[in-house]
Design a protein around this nucleic acid. Structure first.
Lengths: 189, 189
DNA sequence: TGCAGCATGTAACCTGTTACATGATTAG
DNA sequence: CTAATCATGTAACAGGTTACATGCTGCA
């Protein structure tokens, strides 16, 4: 069986964290609670079932840890298969719908790229990200112009913020891409 | 029975659109498909069940329209109870978790405020929005500083974008709030 | 002794996704 | 005539939320 793509944002976040090092469910939960990753949910009712699903798919392995035993902790490690699945998922192409509906997941994917995928892939991702994001900002701007008169003041203001946000994301991607490209050409020389 | 708060983003979007004028399920779907509201889902498998739920709660009323009958279209109207529920929902306080987990819903709420709620409420909303958003940006910045060394390059870059995004949203809210405040003082004079 | 916190989990519920079904109408 | 589009819907499934359960340990 080939490693599957990770669909759920939470599962992706968990695999990403485990790619850095082994953790228990509770450790993961603390990370979610105390960082911006809480956007992907920090509730035990989401995390433990997700861990169970990932283990069933053999993407992670749980081992009982007795040191420091309050109660036996289950520490999870990314399996080879899990690492493959994560790599596959991170390097999927950037589609327009991703930008529109799953910007958070795109950023999450980028967050874990360092070290896991090649420089080429990262700059390629940022390129596509910038292109699609800028294009969508353009689309939004077009619909804003068409409907500006019909829209209530607050609707228009929200749309304008949306457009500016996507533009900012695109600028960010281009900037980071350039930084990375410079580093890479230094390394090759 | 008091009008309930609207929990689901999609239902809120539907009520908001119906507050502008009556529409059929298909009309709603077209709006979702062709505008930035597609973030709240445009699939019939979400919209029609949502309409059914709203009708069951007596927040909207459906009437069969025979003019132009391809097939009988069901046109939905916001009921008085629905309008009350919408008003209640739009004027809920802005909590920190809203900013962290449901920024999209906050912007959606703001989008429909014009005309439905008083100017006081709108400027109050923007004030709270700006405060909470700025505060959360500060939190993120603090965790970034604490963990900067441990974070991989891409993780750090994502976090920085996140912080800048929230800052931008806060600036936007303050700007719009001022514009509205000016208008309101003009109107009173 | 009792209470707060550690660490794990489950069950009911809600909502959204995907994919399919249906029948009518209009354009080529 | 037939294909596309209009307009409505349903069923199976997936994943997250809320709320609760459990037992252990350290502390006041």
């Amino acid at each position: 069986m080939k490693p599957p793509l990770i669909e759920s944002p939470l599962s992706l976040a968990i695999l990403g964290l485990l790619s850095i090092g082994p953790m228990s469910g509770y450790d993961l939960r603390k990370v979610f609670l105390t960082t911006a990753m809480k956007t992907f949910s920090a509730s035990p009712g989401a995390i433990y079932p997700a861990l169970r699903r990932l283990a069933k798919d053999a993407l992670i392995e749980g081992a009982v840890d007795q040191r420091n035993a309050l109660r036996p902790r289950r520490v999870f490690t990314l399996s080879r298969r899990g690492k493959a699945a994560l790599g596959q998922t991170l390097t999927q192409p950037v589609a327009r719908e991703d930008v529109v509906q799953r910007m958070g997941v795109l950023l999450l994917r980028f967050s874990f790229m360092s070290g896991l995928v090649e420089g080429r892939q990262i700059t390629g991702f940022l390129q596509a990200f910038a292109t699609e994001t800028e294009a969508y900002a353009g689309e939004m701007e077009a619909t804003l112009r068409e409907n500006a008169s019909r829209l209530p003041f607050s609707g228009r203001a929200s749309l304008e913020l949306g457009i500016e946000s996507f533009r900012m994301n695109a600028r960010w991607a281009r900037k980071i891409r350039e930084e990375l490209a410079k580093r890479q050409s230094l390394k090759r020389s």
